[in-house]
């Protein structure tokens, strides 16, 4: 199988199981591209994730940077399309046929059911990324500091990302 086919299949499947959004799928993406396919080392994965985070736009960009890393610009485009198309078609169909008022009740139920699941998945994503990015006291302090500041503070995430990069540059 060519790299492009593999990317299309992997992210196409991820698109439909990414319950709770792309952030919730980050542990699965890491498992697939780091542990199973060895396309990236753990450090590369978390660095590419960080790069996709520093750019504007929807967080599907994690698929763009991974696709690009594996198979160049074409890989970035294929991975992104595979990540957005299946879920997007589902969104079109569901919003067309089920978005009327009678669906409000089941939607509330599904939303309430997804909340603890999404919380667990995003915490797992934080766990996986932290385990892959913390290599000493400084990176540990940056991760914990940013976690605390983004939880309780009102600073824009770009300040935290920029601060982390600057600290790494000056002190590592």
């Amino acid at each position: 199988m060519t790299a492009l086919t593999q990317l299309a299949l992997l992210f196409g499947k991820l698109s439909l199981v990414a319950v709770g959004g792309v952030n919730a799928a980050v542990p699965e993406i890491a498992r697939q591209v780091v542990a199973q396919r060895h396309w990236l080392s753990p450090a590369q994965f978390v660095q590419l994730y960080a790069i996709s985070n520093a750019a504007p736009g929807p967080n599907v960009m994690i698929s763009t940077v991974i696709g690009q890393h594996v198979a160049g610009v074409a890989g970035g485009i294929v991975a992104t399309l595979a990540m957005i198309l299946p879920a997007g078609l589902v969104a079109i169909l569901v919003s067309r046929y089920f978005a009327r008022h009678e669906s409000a009740r089941w939607r509330r139920v599904v939303q309430a059911a997804l909340l603890p699941v999404t919380a667990g998945l995003v915490l797992a994503a934080g766990w996986v990324l932290t385990a892959q990015s913390v290599s000493g006291w400084l990176t540990g302090a940056i991760a914990l500091g940013c976690a605390g500041l983004s939880w309780r503070g009102r600073l824009h995430p770009l300040w935290l990302l920029g601060g982390g990069a600057l600290l790494g540059l000056l002190l590592l």
Partner: peptide, 19 residues
């Protein structure tokens, strides 16, 4: 070095979002 700091910050942001 800058990327290592950036990556740790991004991981922290995800943890914060999870909490």
């Amino acid at each position: 070095h800058a990327l290592a700091g950036l990556a740790a910050a991004a991981a922290g942001l995800m943890l914060g979002a999870g909490v």
